[in-house]
Design a protein around this nucleic acid. Structure first.
Lengths: 160, 160
DNA sequence: TATTGTTATACTCTATAACTATA
DNA sequence: TATAGTTATAGAGTATAACAATA
């Protein structure tokens, strides 16, 4: 009997460009090649964690809070390139799960300092281990030297 | 007087990592570096076109239809890594604007062949020119050799 | 007046599931 | 039974605008 292959998101991502179609301009765009790498990375990110609601963005936020305790929400927004409202909902996500807390700042009562709770620290440490392993797997086809070169070239794209 | 700088999406994207914050694990992740490049690319994509509703995904779809007239929706879905439902709504977008048409396939009345209209061809040609220029600008900091190398390294990430 | 944060609202992207028509 | 396409629904990501509290 023919095996039924489930068309998961990851499978779809990997099959991109596997066909015999003409991609025209798309195949020449570096932006599209980067997007494609990003799609593959994010698709397998989900399989790394048991809780599918922990997305790359949410992880990034928790990680940043863990590394820089006490930042204001505007600072977190700037650091991740988010609007204030997007930042609010992302922090809400972790707040609702008891992983971060908003402490009022007595010196400026408009703002809060954002801190990890003990629960948040435990969660972050666990997730970070899985994410690091995921990224290692993602880049396993590249040698150490190639990886360094890739990072250098990507960095040149940001320079303005 | 101090100039008020509007915090556009593109500006936010470019400022990522400009701060003195500790990004911890994030700064070591190749996946994050790729995401960042992708964010910058997409943020400026919007500024390239006057019609902000023409997104990278929608452009990709129109381009693919233009290069491969008569494909079924399932084939377009596979080619872009989309679910059938996501494909439907993306084609709907162009259909509503008179740029593509669904022609019933007499040989298999469940499916359609998707084709560009004259209007779609005109639009595609115009947009493609802008997108090509956008990608050239995006990669302007890299030499020709560096660009080739970047594409080679990205391709290694997809290999499985 | 300007800034911090929240809420309301909206649009894009994307999926799964249920459904219709057809194979 | 399986496949092509649509529709309903939902969650994630993201923005702008309006608002309250505070500076």
């Amino acid at each position: 009997m023919a095996t039924k292959i489930k068309r998961t998101r990851k499978r779809r991502a990997l099959e991109l460009f596997d066909s015999t179609l003409d991609y025209g301009l798309l195949s020449e765009l570096t932006g599209f090649a980067i997007k494609r790498a990003n799609v593959i990375d994010f698709a397998s990110f989900g399989n790394t964690l048991d809780d599918k609601t922990v997305t790359p963005l949410r992880f990034s936020m928790l990680n940043l809070i863990g590394c820089n305790p006490g930042l204001q929400q505007v600072q977190l927004a700037d650091a991740l390139g988010l609007s204030r409202s997007a930042t609010t909902v992302t922090i809400d996500y972790w707040d609702e799960r008891g992983c971060v807390e908003r402490r009022s700042d007595p010196a400026d009562r408009r703002s809060y300092g954002i801190y990890l709770t003990d629960e948040g620290r435990t969660r972050l440490d666990r997730i970070a281990g899985l994410v690091a392993a995921h990224d290692k797997k993602f880049t396993e086809n590249l040698t150490r030297a190639e990886l360094v070169e890739l990072r250098r070239l990507l960095a040149k794209l940001y320079m303005r």
